[in-house]
Amino acid sequence: MRKNGFVVQRFWNNEVFENIEGVLELIRLHCLKATSPPPAPSFRPCGSARGGGR
């Protein structure tokens, strides 16, 4: 399943019955994390390695 991009999240039955909002929030946070864009690469403007190029 992982090869196809699936992730299994497991919850105890009592968590689902007694705290469905918390379970759904964990699922929501995982989905947001999985769909967030990758961090932008860090870079240095030309000349910054030598003190700004001045």
Rank of each mutant, 00 (worst) to 15 (best):
P45I: 08
F43C: 00
V7L: 11
L29Q: 11
F11S: 01
S36R: 14
F11Q: 02
R10M: 13
V23G: 03
G53D: 08
F43I: 05
S36Y: 05
F6G: 04
N19G: 05
W12Q: 00
G47F: 00
K33V: 10
G47E: 04
P45N: 03
R44F: 11
G51F: 01
E15C: 11
T35A: 00
P45L: 11
R50L: 04
N4I: 10
G53Y: 05
C31L: 15
L29N: 02
N4M: 14
I27G: 01
L29R: 03
E25P: 05
C31E: 12
G5F: 09
I20Q: 10
E25F: 09
L24W: 06
S42M: 14
S36Q: 15
C46N: 13
G52P: 06
S36I: 10
G52N: 00
Q9I: 10
G5R: 00
I20R: 01
R2H: 04
F17T: 14
N13R: 14
P41I: 05
T35P: 04
G52D: 07
V8G: 01
R50C: 07
R2D: 08
P39V: 03
G51S: 03
W12C: 02
G52Y: 08
I20C: 02
V7N: 07
R54Q: 12
T35G: 07
F6C: 04
R44H: 13
G53R: 02
F17P: 04
G22S: 06
R2V: 01
P45Q: 06
P38W: 02
A49W: 03
N14R: 15
V23K: 09
F11D: 06
E25Q: 15
M1P: 12
H30W: 09
C31Y: 12
V7I: 11
R10A: 10
V8I: 05
P38D: 09
N19C: 00
R54N: 14
N4R: 15
R44Q: 15
G5K: 02
A34D: 07
L24E: 05
L32I: 04
P38C: 03
P37V: 06
C46Q: 14
R10H: 10
P38L: 10
C31W: 03
V23W: 08
I27D: 07
K33Q: 07
F6A: 13
E18L: 12
R28I: 01
S48H: 05
G47A: 10
S42F: 13
H30S: 12
L29H: 03
C31T: 11
L32Q: 11
R54S: 13
V16W: 09
F11M: 06
H30E: 02
K3C: 05
G22K: 03
N4D: 12
R50H: 01
R2N: 06
V8N: 09
H30R: 11
V23T: 02
Q9C: 07
L32P: 04
G5Q: 13
L32S: 06
K3M: 13
G22H: 02
E25T: 09
V7D: 01
G51D: 02
P37G: 02
N19A: 09
P45C: 08
